[in-house]
């Protein structure tokens, strides 16, 4: 059967029904770049906030005057506490992970007890236990006639904060480190064994250098989370960022401005570290460990061109200024 209509010109077809308002809007919207839309939304949110702040007679003058003091006095201590705590946590997590992977019942038991307690109780309670609770231990020891011993338990606010954050994060990071070590294949350990390495040599030379590649990115995330949790140390009186802001605000009845300043500062700091963190993560995920624990080789080692060997210390140094 012949089908002459197939070759018929378009004009002979019935015209398409006119587009509705909604369809035309959707077509128009599809041509607008995503980034522009996002910018409009951001501007809108910011505008609403500005209007809201004006409505409550927000004192930007006060914020400008006090911001630098809070930054200058508060941020160094916040960073000091966090860097100290993450170092402590790294040591604890390494030991904890080795213990949790060992078949020694003593080390496994102690490590399991440690992680269970510090993951199962609130950080704030731990901070109070370590600052007020240990001080109580010290006082009771002194009363019992062990004066020399008592000083060990009576901690300053900053060491207490570092200890509490370090112990808490060490418990969580134990699991990260354990997973990192387990990601190094069983056969690698056997190859080290077959060479006659002892446990220490096997860990230090073979397992840990390979595990570090897996461990560092999530450890960066932990550090960023810790920057925020460090505000809890405020409660025992450490003069870190949040307490500085609070004190300044209370003195002038500008608490709203002070808390917002603190919030924005935490936001900016975590933003900065997140930026370096994601760069580090990208580098680590594509690279392979090369020449021991301190150097990384990008792009599966292929091609030979553009082989940038980067010291890890540099990558970390890009984070916390000390």
């Amino acid at each position: 059967m012949a089908q002459p209509d197939v070759a018929a010109p378009m004009a002979d077809r019935p015209p398409a029904p006119p587009l509705g308002r909604r369809e035309r809007l959707e077509l128009w919207s599809a041509r607008v770049p995503w980034a522009l839309k996002l910018a409009v939304v951001y501007a809108f949110v910011a505008g609403v906030l500005v209007l809201a702040f004006n409505a409550v007679q927000f004192d930007t003058q006060w914020m400008r005057e006090h911001a630098w003091n809070i930054i200058r006095l508060g941020i160094p201590l916040t960073l000091l506490i966090c860097v100290g705590a993450i170092l402590l946590a790294t040591v604890l997590a390494t030991l904890g992970a080795l213990a949790r992977l060992s078949r020694n019942p003593i080390s496994y038991g102690i490590a399991s007890f440690y992680t269970s307690f510090f993951r199962g109780t609130p950080l704030l309670v731990q901070i109070f236990l370590i600052y007020f609770g240990l001080a109580e231990v010290g006082i009771r020891l002194r009363d019992a006639g062990y004066g020399g011993l008592s000083n060990i338990f009576i901690l300053d606010t900053v060491p207490a904060g570092i200890l509490a954050l370090g112990l808490n994060y060490g418990a969580y990071m134990t699991e990260i480190f354990r997973a990192g070590m387990q990601s190094v294949g069983h056969g690698q350990g056997e190859a080290a064994d077959a060479l006659g390495m002892n446990y220490r040599q096997k860990m230090r030379r073979i397992v840990l250098p390979q595990a570090i590649r897996v461990i560092i990115p999530p450890t960066g995330n932990e550090f960023i989370a810790m920057l925020k949790d460090s505000a809890l140390v405020y409660t025992i009186g450490a003069l870190e960022l949040f307490r500085r802001a609070d004190l300044a605000g209370r003195a002038d009845f500008r608490s709203l401005e002070a808390y917002l300043l603190a919030a924005v500062m935490y936001w900016i700091i975590t933003g900065i570290f997140s930026f370096f963190q994601s760069r580090l993560e990208r580098r680590m995920s594509r690279g392979y460990v090369r020449g021991g624990p301190s150097k990384w080789l990008p792009a599966g080692g292929g091609g030979g061109g553009g082989v940038g060997v980067v010291e890890v210390q540099d990558a970390q140094g890009a984070g916390p200024p000390s």
């Binding site: 294949g185 056969g187 690698q188 056997e190 190859a191 064994d193 077959a194 060479l195 006659g196 390495m197 002892n198 073979i206 250098p209 390979q210 392979y288 460990v289 090369r290 020449g291 021991g292 624990p293």
Partner: peptide, 21 residues
């Protein structure tokens, strides 16, 4: 460990250390 030092082992799947040249 002493015994292993006196024996060399070659594995089916090589097990070279990837982080070393």
């Amino acid at each position: 460990r002493q015994l292993r030092i006196k024996t060399g082992m070659v594995f089916q799947d090589f097990q070279l250390f990837p982080h070393m040249s």
